[in-house]
């Protein structure tokens, strides 16, 4: 029922760093998540995009020197599509995703804390209904545990360099937009509403 104490401690330490970063990144906040979904605050995309680019370089490098192995989830089409729709509606109403709701609870947010009980209930429902969910999960097809490099027969580094270049371009555009915004004098208070 329990893994070894050193595994538990390792998980705890990794989690503490993860939670610390989520809180410092301001994504433990309802408003930041919802305003991202309303396309008005790009904090979530900036964090996730950077994490994916930086993460992919190191993880594929570790795999190349045999120090890590990939853990790919299968494309069970019904499960992924049905799950994504439930997840999307749930996240928009809740205003947190699973990791950020735990971080939000750590920040003191009571609605996030109540959501943890909701998430546990959702997990109870999933396990209980597991047999009857199988036709939905597997019924639309199983493409297996595939990656884009495998499917296209290309090097993963082609994809990683592509992602990194897209990331750097987005970062440059973002910086330029911030630079253009900042020198402008604040005139909001003197201008009448039209």
């Amino acid at each position: 029922m329990f893994e070894s104490p050193d595994r538990l401690l390792l998980g705890l330490a990794t989690g503490v760093v993860f939670g610390f970063l989520l809180q410092k990144g301001r994504v433990a906040k309802f408003e930041v998540i919802v305003e991202q979904l309303r396309l008005r605050d790009w904090t979530v995309v900036r964090i996730m995009g950077t994490a994916v680019v930086v993460g992919s370089i190191g993880v594929y490098a570790l795999v190349a020197i045999d120090e890590a192995s990939l853990h790919i989830r299968p494309v069970l089409l019904g499960g992924v599509l049905g799950g994504a729709v439930c997840f999307g509606v749930g996240m928009a109403v809740f205003g947190y995703c699973p990791g950020t709701s735990i971080a939000g609870s750590g920040e003191g947010r009571r609605d996030a804390l109540v959501g943890l009980a909701g998430m546990f209930t959702g997990a109870l429902g999933f396990v209980g209904a597991f047999p009857s969910l199988q036709p939905l999960i597997k019924g639309m097809g199983d493409w297996g545990r595939i990656t884009f490099p495998e499917v296209t027969g290309t090097s993963p580094w082609l994809w990683i360099v592509g992602l990194a270049m897209a990331g750097i371009a987005a970062f440059a555009v973002d910086r330029r937009a911030a630079h253009q915004r900042s020198p402008r004098p604040k005139r909001l208070s003197t201008e009448p509403h039209s």
Binding site: R73, P74, L76, G79, V80, G82, G83, A84, V85, C86, F87, G88, V89, G90, M91, A92, V93, F94, Y96, C97, P98, S101, V114, G115, L116, A117, G118, M119, F120, T121, G122, A123, G125, F126, L133, L136, I137
Partner: peptide
């Protein structure tokens, strides 16, 4: 309720 739905979806999709 939304958190329950979100978790249910996450487990469907793994």
């Amino acid at each position: 309720l939304s958190a329950a739905l979100m978790m249910f979806g996450a487990r469907l999709a793994q």
